[in-house]
Simulated scan of single mutants.
Amino acid sequence: MDGWNRFYVNRFIAPAFDSLGPGIDVSSPKNIEIWGGGITAGSHLHLHASRGSLVRLATWRTGEREGRIDIGDCVLISPGTHIVASEEIVIGSDTMIASNCYISDSDWHDTYDRTAELDKHRPIRIGENVWLGVRAIVGKGVTIGENSIIGAGSVVTRDIPANCIAAGNPARVVRELDTTREFKRRSTLFRNPEKLEQDMDNLMRYLLRENTTLGWLRSVFSPSGTD
């Protein structure tokens, strides 16, 4: 992170967590929203938002019950993803969550009483090293076993076992993974922090390659429709 991002994260993002491990990495921090208490994360959390693709972590209090979000180590959360808890959402270490996913442990309104949540909430458990594809939806009461992959656009309404690929609406197992093969997890990226930092710096330089001081000044004083 550059100096401005680091200041913003330390001043506004990190204090919003009840506990947060070291090594957090955030892109576009102004597009990160963290609401409510009971939100914790381990080390090397990657929160990647972008303009128009807000990342939101939120908990809700109902009476004496307050939702909780517990995120493990080395978890990736991509732009546009919303994680909202009425009861409890647990996300295991090394999990990757692609863009525009929605994870919620509540329907938020009863089928017939649209003014109340009533009993329409149950905790979510996402195991370690899970991969959620783009625009996946995970509903209340679901458990996803470790190493499993949820296909893009899938809607998970029932438990998915470990070591498989599931897809569809509702999501169903379409293939079993070969457990005799080694899974290389995100945590391996952090065994060489110098290389990782250089790789991330190269990536940001590529993404920002067209940004110039003159272009920034023009966008401030004479913005166009594409700014």
Rank of each mutant, 00 (worst) to 15 (best):
N147E: 02
R11G: 08
I91W: 02
N5V: 04
A98K: 10
S222C: 02
E128K: 07
P15G: 10
L189M: 10
P161T: 00
W131E: 03
S224L: 03
L207D: 09
Y102C: 15
E194N: 04
G3W: 00
D159K: 02
V142S: 09
F183R: 14
A98T: 13
S19F: 08
D159G: 10
W108K: 14
M1S: 03
E176G: 13
S154G: 07
I150N: 06
M96Y: 06
H46I: 00
S19L: 07
D110C: 14
A98Y: 14
A16Q: 09
V130Q: 05
E194Y: 07
P161H: 00
D94P: 10
G38L: 08
L20M: 03
R172C: 03
G23M: 05
I83V: 13
R186F: 01
S19I: 01
D2L: 03
P29Y: 09
K120C: 14
S104G: 14
V156H: 00
Q198Y: 06
P79R: 12
D105M: 15
E194R: 00
R11C: 11
K120A: 12
F7T: 02
S43M: 01
N192Y: 11
S53L: 07
L203I: 07
E88L: 07
V155P: 02
I149A: 03
K120P: 06
V174Q: 04
Y8W: 12
S19P: 12
R125G: 11
E66N: 10
D107I: 05
S187K: 02
R6G: 01
I103S: 12
I71W: 01
S93T: 11
A16E: 09
E146K: 12
G145C: 11
S50A: 15
E182Q: 15
I77S: 06
R181P: 03
M96H: 04
K120D: 13
S104H: 15
G37N: 15
G151P: 06
A49P: 15
F183V: 14
E66I: 11
T226F: 00
R125K: 10
S148R: 05
F183D: 04
P79G: 10
D2V: 07
N129A: 14
N211L: 12
G215Q: 06
D73M: 06
T81F: 04
A116H: 14
R172A: 01
G63D: 11
G133H: 09
Y102N: 14
I71A: 04
L118Y: 09
V156K: 02
S43E: 09
Q198A: 10
E146I: 11
P161I: 01
R172V: 06
H121K: 13
G3N: 04
H48D: 04
V55Q: 07
M1T: 07
